[in-house]
Write a protein that binds this DNA or RNA. Structure first.
Length: 122
DNA sequence: GTCTTGACTAAGC
DNA sequence: GGCTTAGCCAAGA
């Protein structure tokens, strides 16, 4: 066979899909790179998500600041402007940082399906 | 064409 | 609780 396997999607296509997924994060919530990658169909391409956000155009209205690392920590150095900017945006949405970290159990966007089933009061 | 880097994650110490 | 190592994959030099 002349290599008639699945045509790998162009990077731009993947990036756009990632941005679309990030846009689906509700305000006041945050998602991890791994989660975005999984929702975008990249599986364990957490790094791909980071690259996609880096290639993100400046005029885009994608809430990149709602994407954080696993464990609820921001992917930038604490002394970086990007870090402060992201933290400011998160606080503006009602997300508080505790010790430089975000409580995923509180602000995490659909941690796992188990949690949805655990949802009390319904 | 090879090597290094990087907006990552999970596991180990 | 935090640091280190290994795994992964794509872009840049």
């Amino acid at each position: 066979m002349t290599g008639a396997r699945e045509p790998a999607p162009p990077t731009l296509e993947v990036n756009r899909r990632i941005w679309r997924t990030v846009e689906q994060i509700p305000p006041g919530k945050v998602a991890t790179y791994g989660q975005i990658a999984d929702l975008a169909g990249l599986g364990r391409g957490a790094r791909r998500v980071g690259r996609a956000l880096r290639d993100l155009p400046k005029q885009s209205s994608v809430p990149w600041y709602r994407v954080i690392r696993a464990g609820g920590q921001i992917a930038f150095p604490a002394d970086s402007d990007a870090f402060k900017r992201q933290r400011s945006q998160l606080e503006q949405e009602g997300v508080s940082l505790v010790n430089g970290r975000i409580d995923l159990g509180l602000y995490g966007w659909q941690r796992t399906l188990d949690e949805l089933l655990w949802k009390p009061g319904s």
